[in-house]
């Protein structure tokens, strides 16, 4: 891949992200998922757990923000190809020289960045309504964790998107997948409270490691070792997701060209 191709792909990612942002801002379902729902979760958590002390507030802020990120990843990124197929634009995307996965990266990155707004909203909510001033223990490490979280969510979205297209049965379970992941990834409470057999499931989900890194650097500091482990797990899982999604995209597009399912009317 030469420099010109990289520049072309970078431009595609930017335009795809911009387009996704414009579309999402006019979609009330999306706005509810990334703005309203995390606020509801944060409000409930503040009322129930607010008396636990200052550190727990930032835990709630991060946790509710992560729920917004996952909802966005599951519904918006997961549907990114399906939606293009229904609107008749997938055929056009596929017949351009740009790989579909590059376009999807742009859309997912945009969705992830928009979802971070829910974390900011929860933070503001804590200050304005409850009078808390959440502090972050390790601001630099937290920022690094946040950047890795964005990347790992983007890779996870890139994996989910072709899986949903190739397996419509999985997509039918989309609603049911939302809350189990909140629980398995320890967004709002530690996974130590769950039965032991669920732990391996948490370990293969990068949002779990993202939540762990963000919680550790903001409120539950146990030393650099734990954070480094979470970062390494995020990077490794993201690479695995990327490789798997690359294979799935190739398979998806070949199958769609064989089965004539690029366009559904």
């Amino acid at each position: 891949m030469n420099l010109k191709t990289l520049r072309d792909y970078g431009r595609v990612i930017f335009y795809a992200a911009e387009m996704a942002l414009r579309s999402n801002l006019t979609d009330s379902f999306v706005l509810f998922g990334i703005l309203v729902q995390p606020i509801i979760i944060a409000l409930l958590a503040f009322w129930m757990l607010g008396d636990r002390g200052g550190e727990y507030i930032i835990f709630v802020v991060i946790g509710s923000g992560m729920t917004g990120l996952w909802t966005s990843c599951l519904f918006i990124s997961g549907n990114s190809i399906t939606q293009e197929r229904w609107t008749g634009t997938l055929e056009l995307m596929v017949s351009t020289p740009t790989p579909v996965s590059v376009i999807v990266i742009g859309k997912i990155l945009s969705n992830v960045l928009q979802s971070l707004a829910s974390m900011v909203l929860s933070y503001t909510l804590a200050i304005v309504i409850f009078g808390y001033v959440p502090t972050i223990n390790q601001p630099v490490l937290f920022t690094i964790s946040l950047l890795l979280t964005i990347l790992s969510y983007a890779c996870f979205g890139l994996l989910i998107s072709p899986v949903f297209v190739l397996n419509p049965d999985v997509q039918r379970l989309q609603n049911g997948l939302e809350f189990p992941v909140y629980v398995l990834c320890g967004f709002m409470f530690p996974i130590a409270l769950l039965p032991g057999w669920t732990t391996p499931l948490s370990y293969i989900l990068s949002p779990y490691w993202a939540a762990r890194a963000l919680h550790a650097t903001s409120s539950q500091w146990n030393g650099l070792g734990e954070v480094a482990l979470s970062w390494a797990a995020m990077v490794a899982l993201s690479l695995i997701y990327l490789m798997l999604s690359s294979l799935l995209f190739k398979r998806l597009l070949r199958r769609a060209r064989l089965d004539a399912t690029l366009n559904i009317q």
Binding site: R11, Y15, A16, M19, T96, P97
Partner: peptide
């Protein structure tokens, strides 16, 4: 215009 700008980027 924006549709064309987007597709122009896809065609590099």
């Amino acid at each position: 215009y924006d549709n064309l700008r987007y597709f122009a980027s896809l065609y590099h």
